[in-house]
Design a protein around this nucleic acid. Structure first.
Length: 273
DNA sequence: ATGTCGGCATTGTGCCGA
């Protein structure tokens, strides 16, 4: 009898991707799912209510779905090979008219974990209610993330944070100086989230600059590699201890009809026992 | 300042959001 501890279970692969409309992006998303085979895909900006989500295409590939949809704008979803349990839509205690947060337990035995798909407000332009909403939303997320740590579970908070954490995550800091994604307040709130005890998966394993997850559709940004890194996977200590890999998959951005964001994924090994 | 997308209300095009 082969023991689990000797050969081990495959690591759990968890990805996040702002797809910028699941209906418009369906062929791209399905092609990436078939090639990359993530166990879990956290999606943002699905831009549809649940009724409009192409459920069959995911289910035929073995994925279970949890959707927090909205017409026209926003909308988040979780696709998982494993059963989804304890699904929560919206940040607890926050009457948010915009669908930007969904959370679930991934029922994968000893590799189980809690995941959230997060679409943090953009916040532009500065000096408007939109930036106030962004910072307020971040405080609400911080409060919830703090509570999640109390359960001492493996937690993966993945999504489009709309925050450029550091200068090295930006092709041209000067060009983004007046943008909500690059403001000191936005970056301080992101650090506050980390300081609770979360580990940003990509920077835990990679030091290199020029690692971007978003390139504007305009001005040939991708061809010039004029990008920013705003899609992140934040891990609780129990998840961070299991982190074995994290990559930004740049290839989908070069495809026809691409999203302006690319998938970012991490692998979590089974916990030691 | 602008570029380019996607969705929508709407049938040709302009607006919003990013």
């Amino acid at each position: 009898m082969l023991s689990q501890s000797k050969h081990g279970a495959d690591p759990m692969k968890i990805a996040t991707w702002n797809v910028n409309s699941i209906k418009a992006r369906l062929p791209n998303v399905l092609a990436w799912l078939d090639a990359a085979k993530p166990d879990v895909l956290l999606m943002q900006e699905i831009k549809t209510v649940a009724d409009g989500f192409p459920t069959m295409e995911f289910e035929s590939r073995g994925y279970n779905l949890a959707i927090h949809g909205q017409k026209t704008y926003n909308g988040v979803a979780i696709a998982s090979i494993f059963r989804l349990d304890d699904v929560r839509r919206g940040l607890p205690g926050y009457e948010d008219p915009q669908a930007r947060f969904i959370e679930a337990w991934i029922d994968a035995g000893d590799r189980g974990c809690r995941v959230a798909s997060i679409y943090l407000p953009n916040g532009n332009p500065l000096g408007t209610e939109k930036f106030v909403y962004k910072l307020d939303w971040m405080e609400r997320l911080i409060a919830h993330a703090r509570k999640l740590l109390k359960d001492e579970e493996a937690v993966v908070l993945g999504g489009d944070y709309n925050v450029i954490p550091e200068d090295r995550d930006c092709h041209d800091p000067k060009a983004w100086a007046g943008d909500a994604l690059f403001q000191p307040e936005s970056r301080a709130a992101f650090r506050k989230l980390l300081h609770l005890g979360y580990t940003e998966a990509f920077r835990a394993l990679h030091d290199e600059p020029l690692a971007y997850s978003f390139w504007n559709y305009q001005a040939r940004a991708f061809e010039r590699d004029a990008g920013i890194r705003i899609d992140h996977l934040l891990l609780s200590p129990q998840a961070a201890d299991r982190l074995t890999a994290c990559q930004i998959d740049k290839a989908p951005r070069a495809e026809e009809h691409a999203s302006d964001h690319v998938p970012v994924w991490c692998s979590l090994a089974a916990p030691e026992r």
